[in-house]
Design a protein around this nucleic acid. Structure first.
Lengths: 208, 208
DNA sequence: TTAATTCTTGATCAAATGGTCAAGACCGCT
DNA sequence: AGCGGTCTTGACCATTTGATCAAGAATTAA
């Protein structure tokens, strides 16, 4: 049964494969060294092909960077879309925290890629931030505000609630080195971090 | 009365002045573009001197970077040293959060400089992290643990409490663009953020 | 098989960039 | 004023790096 055929029109089999390989290599390198710290040669080497060949698929370094950013953006915001206005607020938010924490654990490179882009003033995804992302945050804030109005959770600024959740969860991906320097290498601090964060949030939201 | 004379031996008046100017310019540029994204020319231009002149004071780009990192490190950790084991825990921690938040507001460039260094694996300050910084965090965790033992605050992982505080407060400096994209430019979100964070922490620490 | 298309890369280029050098300007001291 | 040391910079160099090109190899469809 034909299953994996997302082959968009005008795209060769080899094209699809190699673009995937390149984007994977690019995420690897860009997230580790930043945009300016990354050379096309590095990406090419990691992708296992020559530099001219890589530039045959993406004509400019900038194109690769944009492509890998765009590819990861969707995944990154996805959990926020899952918030159910009809669900139990504390459960919904806890689930969201868990989802974000899982992303930080399983795909720290994506987190670092964004962190780097933000840190440098979001030159590429700036429009995305003030457009689709702001819209999604606004919508989510509305859901939270409705919960507050109905007395289901304590009154708290919905925006800063969202921001602090992002801050705490992404921190464990972006500042991974710092955390490992303090807690040691082979500790499962992600689990402890998650329970700590969820507790903070739940205690802060519990209506009194 | 002679007041400002930190002139270390063998350091000229002009030397002291220019090194200060250079480090200021370097913080500006490094925090905005990262290590690799910064050119010596940029720093020189911002410092208002020629590139060879700048390299007369710091012989390598790397030396400038290390110097500006080192200079800001002390300030950055300072608030953590102020925790008084004898004080009222909730007050002490709230004061600490306020101090960190003030640093994010008043010196976001220092925050971004460190964030960038961490993001790229802390190649320069790695030893500092696992050395003096770890020691300071360990000591602070001990203080918090004592408070827990005495029943003054709820049982919580001291390390992750510290990490989450760092995460939330530094986030407002490092992800400034994102926050402004969502909340708009001329809102005093730092104040709202601080009250939200302090509330989360206090509710989470209140003994029950 | 064959011809058209797609893919691949060694060689090469131009610009950017970290760093050097020699020569002159300036400063501080006597 | 005059002298030694400090400071400043235009010109220059070597390397890195993003990007191009022409020519050959592999793939695809008939």
């Amino acid at each position: 049964m034909a299953q994996s055929k997302p082959k968009s029109p005008g795209k060769t089999r080899i094209q699809a494969i190699n673009e995937d390989i390149i984007l994977g290599a690019a995420l690897e390198v860009f997230s580790a060294y930043g945009y300016r710290g990354t050379t096309v040669d590095q990406i090419a080497e990691r992708a296992g092909m020559s530099k001219p060949n890589l530039l045959y698929y993406f004509r400019r370094k900038d194109d690769i960077y944009r492509a890998v950013l765009e590819k990861t953006l969707a995944d990154w915001l996805a959990p926020l879309r899952g918030l159910d206005p009809e669900g139990e607020p504390l459960d919904e938010i806890s689930r969201y925290v868990s989802a974000k924490m899982a992303m930080s654990r399983d795909n720290p490179k994506a987190s670092r890629l964004f962190a780097n882009e933000m840190l440098h003033g979001a030159p590429i995804i700036g429009d995305f931030l003030s457009g689709p992302m702001k819209a999604l945050v606004d919508a989510t804030a509305q859901i939270i505000r409705a919960w507050i109005t109905k007395g289901q959770i304590a009154a708290i600024d919905p925006y800063h609630l969202i921001f602090t959740i992002w801050a705490m969860t992404q921190h464990y991906a972006d500042f991974d080195i710092q955390i490992r320097a303090v807690l040691g290498e082979n500790s499962d601090h992600f689990r402890n971090a998650e329970t700590t964060i969820i507790r903070l949030i739940q205690d802060g939201l519990r209506p009194r």
